[in-house]
Amino acid sequence: MSRFLRNQGWVAGLFALLIFLFVVTKLIQPGYGSGDFGSLARAVLPYAFAVAAQTVVVIAGGIDLSVAAMMALTSVTAASMMDGASEEYALFVVPFVLAMGLVLGALNGVLIVVTRVPDIVVTLAMLFVLQGAALLVLGAPGGAAAEWLKASVIGTVPIPGLPDWADAWVPKALVLLVVCLCIVWIPLRRSRLGLSIYAIGSNELAAFRSGVPVARTRIVAYALSGLFAAMGGLSLTISTGIGAPIPGPYLLASVAAVVLGGVALGGGKGGLLGPIIAVFVLRLVRTDLTLLAIDPNVTAIIEGAIMVAVVMFGAFITIRGRPVGATS
């Protein structure tokens, strides 16, 4: 039990915070119901994928600044490919865009390994490049998404044997999110590859000495990040019906949620669940602020301030976690 608390205590606490926020929401707006929850899930979708993308590389001891730009590029690619195309064509677009994310992510990793330029600089350069590429694909917001894709995030999933009222609390967007993340994460988490990703982030030297192929693992981590970012980009196109070439505020949000989700910025620690719950927490805070009739711009400030505070807190914890006796 004590170990469960030590290892999962943070996530458990976060979950409790989420429940608390739901209660607060319900108090502010007694009418808050399943429909609102569904729109929350839809709003969370792109953020959650961005966070998943960031989480993988942070666990591997790196950082990916190109997450938001990658999402913009994949989003506009999907939107422009589906523009005017048949519904069936989308069946090809989705795997194509996912593969694109995977390859571009791997490119990040390869550049880091080959040029030996630090991850932060490589992904910053890639941020410029991907942003530029997104603008080349679509100069202004536009494009379209296939109807069946749009439908895949709207409404709820009918689960046999479940009463309607409970069913209403299972929005498709949430199911889509859980399925997409689990398909990648569950097999990975306990595999040798997944362990290797944790290992290089936790202690690169020990990982090397344990026979982990460090360079290859790093490339895989960035490739997975690209894959998740592509999912995020797709979800943007799907939920808005268009693609926008200017990256949204997903970079800072992803870093903040990663930190809030209990994944140490130094690497090696945490899982995917924490950051995903953290995204819900951050979004729900926004919802509550909106419900309290606070100016949306003020909401943006508060949100930004929370994120910066969380990141500062995370960095502070990292300093504290340094070897005994070290002064700063």
């Binding site: 306990r190 362990l195 944790y198 290992a199 982030g201 202690n203 020990a206 344990s210 982990v212 090696g268």
Partner: peptide, 15 residues
């Protein structure tokens, strides 16, 4: 050379 953030079992599996 054990990975500090993995449990013992995972460390065994890793190697």
């Amino acid at each position: 050379a054990l990975i500090p953030d993995l449990d013992v079992l995972s460390n065994l599996r890793l190697t």
